[in-house]
Design a protein around this nucleic acid. Structure first.
Lengths: 162, 162
DNA sequence: GTAAATAATTAGCTATAGAAATCATTCGTA
DNA sequence: TACGAATGATTTCTATAGCTAATTATTTAC
């Protein structure tokens, strides 16, 4: 019973998709232990970085449409991790703030991210890790997957050529 | 309006997820020009490699559960790209074969995969490309994302730590 | 010859995403 | 200052994609 993945894939596209999907999935699994979805974790991070921002701004930062933000923030708020407060000068805006519980949850998430990071670097020399990061960063620059774009929201499909 | 992606991410996890998702998405976009979904393309490839196989076997090869296979093959068959034939000795099995049209479609898909590959390698020296592929392959080995596992089907979410 | 396993299929459920419509509010500008 | 355009949050609707479980037919094991 042959598998597509049995071929020695020298294909960059295949490897990147395969490895990237794996990394994303592992991280989501890990985050699930504290009942956090990756988008929720991202929201906590962004709110922590600058609080008092509108949902819209945060959605832009993490690449989620405003309509998605509602449900994400709803749950975070229900769990007492963030607060929606009225914006002092613009009554349309729901400014988001971390609660103390939110800050604690974020800290736990970051610990998990570090563990994840360690797992991914497992068996890799520091030099190789650095090389890999460098190459990936160059790739990001070259392909223009930088700030303005948010390429990592959902795959249309876990596609791996070849 | 700061973006999560504005930080200089030295995080391997973030980079891998980001880049992998980008690669997968781009490839899906390209394939869409010939109205093929990545799983369909994978099926064509596997059927081409060994024809007469059961849907189940092919599903294993590409990491799709049997129930998913039905719809995938349904469409390929409706479009005249593959044929379901009775297996000579096992009447439970629907053996799959490429039609001439299927072979032509596969060729077009492979051309697209090559273009995709070229795009990803754009601006990268041959040496860097080789280095990157080598590092990713080592990663795959080390993390055990090889044959038996099929990690790249669907992300629970496009997760990117940090 | 009966029970367990296997192949294909169907049905039901969940999660995600995105588009569009709605409502309130603010901003630009004449 | 009034009016139209733009913006923020929300709701609703649609589509997709995947999984699990149940179903049916057939084969294999004992």
């Amino acid at each position: 019973m042959p598998r597509a993945s049995d071929k020695a894939h020298t294909s960059l596209g295949f490897l990147l998709s395969q490895v990237g999907t794996y990394a994303a999935r592992r991280f989501a699994q890990r985050l699930a232990t504290i009942e956090l979805h990756p988008p929720q974790f991202r929201v906590l991070n962004v709110v922590d970085a600058i609080d008092g921002q509108s949902q819209h701004a945060i959605g832009e930062a993490i690449g989620a449409p405003a309509s998605r933000m509602v449900a994400i923030v709803d749950e975070l708020e229900e769990r007492g991790l963030v607060e929606r407060r009225p914006h002092p000068s613009d009554r349309r805006i729901r400014a988001l703030y971390l609660t103390p519980a939110g800050r604690r949850m974020l800290a736990r998430g970051r610990k998990i991210a570090m563990e994840h990071e360690a797992e991914l670097a497992r068996g890799m020399s520091a030099a190789d890790r650095k090389r890999l990061v460098g190459l990936l960063q160059k790739f990001v620059d070259e392909q223009g997957i930088g700030s303005g774009v948010h390429p990592g929201l959902s795959e249309p499909d876990g596609s791996k050529p070849g």
